[in-house]
Design a protein around this nucleic acid. Structure first.
Lengths: 135, 135
DNA sequence: TGTTGACTTGGAGTGAACTCAAGGTAGTAA
DNA sequence: TTACTACCTTGAGTTCACTCCAAGTCAACA
């Protein structure tokens, strides 16, 4: 890890430079340090934070929640409890998401198996297929 | 199960009447049958389909993909293979999602444990917390 | 000394998926 | 008859999360 330009970070994390600047604008990333000419550079700490928020964003954690967390971090020691609380709330949301995701995956697998075994036969009416799945 | 009004379906599946009408407008739900006064009623087949699409929507399957699937269903037997293909694609997407979700959950759990054991101590600089997590 | 090319800014535009508002009708209850 | 409620339609508005655009700066290279 080293200090990377915005384009390098963009390539590393598959996230557009515009998005990186947007994240900074809304406070999801703090003020990024600059070269004498004004160009941003991203150090190790920033890259660690980026990795974290990109992972969580991919899982559907809202930008708002992450901005809240970032703001709490900026306020330092006084917000340790609030931060833990926020993380726990988000964890619960993600666990709900996973439960639902598991249901959907099972549903799709079951449905696909019906296609493969030919149990969804020709000539069925539009919705007949769905009665099978009322489980 | 019986024939339900739009409000009853709305309550049953926690989805707004406007959203139900919207789904119909865009072809995600087929023409819903009507009472003589024009009010919609949702029969068993429709409710089964709704349950399915709501589950998948909660898991992040796009409206577009579901509309495509609905259109294929409407076209009958000739689309059996295309339907199976579409389901398999969506299943793959969901499995990717689950892998990422698991990563995020582990990350959050780890982070919360750092808060609980006090390993995230007072007086740390803004990003120091994230260096711990470079794993 | 131009002319690339990578960066900068502020602000506007986009796409997905709802969500709402305005105005109208049908059926019931006082 | 009037009031109320639940439904209807069309079309516009909202939210979220980017994503793009135009115009400008700066460093390096021919």
């Amino acid at each position: 890890m080293a200090e990377l330009t915005i384009t390098e970070v963009s390539n590393k994390y598959h996230i557009k430079p515009d998005t990186l600047r947007y994240y900074e604008r809304i406070g999801l990333i703090p003020k990024v340090p600059r070269r004498p000419n004004g160009n941003r550079y991203y150090n190790d700490g920033l890259q660690g934070w980026l990795e974290m928020i990109i992972c969580l964003r991919h899982s559907g954690v809202s930008v708002e929640a992450l901005v809240d967390y970032a703001h709490l971090l900026e306020q330092g020691d006084a917000t340790l409890d609030a931060r833990e609380e926020l993380l726990k709330e988000q964890l619960e949301l993600l666990e709900e998401k996973r439960a639902n995701l598991d249901r959907s995956i099972k549903r799709l697998q079951h449905k696909i198996s019906l296609y493969e075994t030919g149990e969804i036969k020709k000539g069925k009416s539009y919705f007949e297929e769905y009665k099978i799945l009322d489980d």
